[in-house]
Amino acid sequence: MTEIDEKTRTELEAAAFRRLVSHLRARTDVQNIDLMNLAGFCRNCLSNWYLDAAKERDLPLTREESREIVYGMPYEAWKAAHQSEASPEQKAAFPGPGGH
């Protein structure tokens, strides 16, 4: 495996994160429940992980702000524009409480 210094590794991870967020913003057709059912995480999870990282560094970020970073807009606006009602099949496959 190629030896990568810590600074470069952090920069590569940040670039991958930004690309993932950009991809999720573009794929508004993919519902969070689909992500949860297939991958075990969703946009909300990603925003929560971002918030956790901010809290570990004592940064004053709110849940709403971390969601806006991931969604590219306020969460409620994204839901109104892009979220659809989950199908019975999607609901049946959802891991439920604790599955997040």
Score class of each variant (00 low, 15 high):
3 E>Y: 08
5 D>F: 01
6 E>T: 12
6 E>M: 12
8 T>P: 03
8 T>I: 12
8 T>R: 04
9 R>V: 03
10 T>I: 14
11 E>K: 10
13 E>Q: 11
13 E>Y: 05
16 A>W: 01
16 A>C: 08
16 A>I: 05
17 F>D: 00
18 R>D: 11
20 L>D: 01
23 H>V: 05
24 L>P: 02
25 R>M: 01
27 R>N: 12
27 R>V: 06
30 V>D: 00
31 Q>W: 02
34 D>H: 15
34 D>T: 15
35 L>E: 06
37 N>G: 06
39 A>C: 13
39 A>E: 13
40 G>T: 08
43 R>D: 06
44 N>F: 10
45 C>D: 08
48 N>C: 13
52 D>T: 15
54 A>Q: 11
55 K>H: 14
56 E>V: 09
58 D>Y: 11
59 L>P: 09
59 L>V: 08
60 P>Y: 10
61 L>P: 00
61 L>T: 01
66 S>Y: 05
67 R>A: 11
70 V>C: 02
70 V>Y: 02
70 V>A: 06
71 Y>S: 03
76 E>K: 13
76 E>Y: 07
77 A>T: 15
77 A>M: 13
79 K>S: 15
81 A>K: 06
81 A>F: 00
81 A>T: 11
83 Q>I: 03
84 S>D: 13
87 S>P: 08
91 K>H: 04
91 K>G: 02
91 K>M: 13
92 A>F: 04
92 A>G: 10
93 A>G: 02
93 A>R: 09
95 P>Y: 10
97 P>D: 07
100 H>D: 14
